[in-house]
Nucleic acid binder design. Sequence first.
DNA 1: GTTTCAGCCG
DNA 2: CGGCTGAAAC
Lengths: 265, 265
Amino acid sequence: MKIATWNVNSIRTRLEHATNWLKESGVDVLCLQETKVVDELFPREPFEKLGYHLYTSGQKSYNGVAIISRQPMEDISVGFTSILPDVDAKWDEQKRVISGVVDGIRIVNLYVPNGSSIGSEKYEYKLGWLEILKDYLQKQLKSTPNICVCGDFNIALEDKDIHEKAKPATHIMSSDAEREALRENVLKLGFADAFRKFTSEGEHYSWWDYRAASFNRNRGWRIDHHYLTPDLYERATSCTIDIEPRKLTQPSDHTPVTVELSSSK
Amino acid sequence: MKIATWNVNSIRTRLEHATNWLKESGVDVLCLQETKVVDELFPREPFEKLGYHLYTSGQKSYNGVAIISRQPMEDISVGFTSILPDVDAKWDEQKRVISGVVDGIRIVNLYVPNGSSIGSEKYEYKLGWLEILKDYLQKQLKSTPNICVCGDFNIALEDKDIHEKAKPATHIMSSDAEREALRENVLKLGFADAFRKFTSEGEHYSWWDYRAASFNRNRGWRIDHHYLTPDLYERATSCTIDIEPRKLTQPSDHTPVTVELSSSK
DNA sequence: GTTTCAGCCG
DNA sequence: CGGCTGAAAC
């Protein structure tokens, strides 16, 4: 079973890229972020024609997540509050969370807030959001022990996940507090980074800023991840970044990352 | 010698269409309107690579004209005031006029104001602009007797130049005053419509509104013209509208019109 | 319907 | 640099 994550930066603008890649890759589950469209306007048909089922949670202009699955999914939930009723509704105003179960695996698709700049209001929102995420994942773990949490985390956990020209400590997406929040609220629950099961060296990135020709210079960041619970981590047979879509004309600034899991016994 | 006119509605957006059509058509002179770009940002190279010389007069966002010529042109002039120094500079604030001489023929490339709606301030501007045009053409005729005035005139001279659903008298581009202005300020100077030398029937159009599927229903207007002085009119061997570019994806709302002149003796 | 812009966001 | 908006132009 192949599960991919891709921040498409507008599904309507990237529709051709996304459907072509889905055809070529043949992944079973494709988690999209930054769809930037309300559910009623999501271009469902091109995906349905390829035989996929869609689950979307979108808004106008910003954010928005979707899961595209070959098999129908069960137990779909949108946002934090459907799972954590006591959580302040402000954490669900932005559409950043969608989840569902397929083949006994809960897929949690996240678009973690970017945070703008260290110390800003949006930065505090990001850190607060990651605390809610902990409660959310703990709750989900109780009903489904096998979870793949994937998406655009907007955090590069280690220095080797960032190109050499960037200064991690002073940069959004790599500050100590963000990394600590990711460790504390995700990793400590028992999740492990699928990519690092197979690849220990650096210079593998999933996002390159549109500016300053950063893709051509390979000045990227690895901020799109799959975090797996222990049994799934055991089942992972590969985790790869496909940089081809980043080379196309009018690309997303992110490129898809795919984990493959062996079938359960 | 082939001289074409085409309102491209942004040369940057239509660059591929324009270069492809130039290659296929092999015209000697291509007059563009609504280039919508300042001269410094005009995409010269793709045309120069095809062996053409460029003469541009553009502005940001609106209007803008250019002549693309296989042979270098002489006596290039931009705007009305370079020829008519006493004319109020307000008539040249919008970039709508460029002219040059090639092979003994003066090409005058015009983007006549649209006029918005009958009776509006812009309508009065259009009529005023057409009066200046008369002085301009008379002056040009003195130095170069052979003139091809072409471009987007935003006027359909006869009812048969407009699809049947439109009501000419009440519509911008076909009001009596606009038609009269075109007759008085251009035709009366001795110019004749090259297209009507060869084709007398209607339902031949050069512009179709983007709205209401007007191209598919062939609800168009013939508003892009070549007006020729008598000797050139005599030399004209064809004048044709190529509707193919209007069928492409992301087309201009106009399509190119080409006049062919036999070589002079 | 399509393009342009400024202003916003990342 | 490239998404998005909403207004203006045609």
